[in-house]
């Protein structure tokens, strides 16, 4: 990098690195964390290992795609606001462009009966991928009565919403979970206070 380290060269470097990841971002955000670590920590030394682990924890628990959150953070760390803007644009650019191109020809594309049949098969695979993502999060949760009740209420609630065409947004269930989390925390800290 040499003399480019603090100039426009770094912006370009950030942009191209994120674009590269944007093109190969298959398999969801979790799959990308190992690739990110390799590039940002080991090879480019943009961020230390322990800070990277903090960033991943933040990215997982704040809204938005994990890959985008990590790139926004790393961009900010290197070059402030403009760094984060360049990094985020670089990360989203490839999927935006590819998806835009697919959108232009989507109907012709799906009119091909081979492609249509292949995607009918892939539809089934999507169910499997979604279910395994849900199970992955499920495994990480502490199995307390409160957590399990929230899980079951949300799960059954959302299936009912779909089957009975109810007008309840899933946001309601997410906020309900957060409220239970805070209530349990307040009750626990009160108990500890008394003991």
């Amino acid at each position: 990098m040499g003399k480019n380290k603090n100039g426009l060269g770094l912006f370009l470097n950030i942009f191209l690195t994120m674009t590269k990841f944007g093109f190969f971002a298959f398999g969801g955000g979790y799959a990308m964390i190992a690739l990110f670590e390799n590039e940002f920590v080991s090879s480019k030394k943009w961020i230390t290992h322990s800070e990277f682990m903090d960033v991943v924890a933040i990215a997982e628990s704040t809204p938005g795609p994990i890959a985008i959150n990590v790139s926004t953070y790393v961009g900010y760390k290197l070059k402030g606001f403009w760094g984060s803007l360049v990094a985020t644009t670089g990360m989203c650019g490839p999927s935006f462009l590819l998806m835009y191109l697919v959108s232009l020809y989507y109907d012709q594309f799906m009119a091909n009966r081979f492609i249509y049949a292949a995607f009918k098969g892939i539809q089934v695979c999507v169910i499997f991928l979604i279910a395994s993502a849900g199970i992955k999060i499920l495994k990480k949760i502490k199995k307390t009565p409160a957590n399990l009740s929230v899980l079951i209420i949300t799960g059954i609630g959302m299936i009912a919403v779909s089957l009975f065409s109810l007008e309840i947004s899933s946001v309601v269930f997410i906020l309900f979970g957060a409220a239970v989390g805070i209530a349990v925390y307040l009750i626990d800290s009160k108990k500890k206070g008394r003991a």
Partner: peptide
């Protein structure tokens, strides 16, 4: 607290 409901949400999406 959100994590259990997110897991429930994702599993319900797969189920429906």
């Amino acid at each position: 607290g959100m994590h259990p409901s997110i897991s429930g949400l994702i599993l319900a999406t797969a189920a429906t």
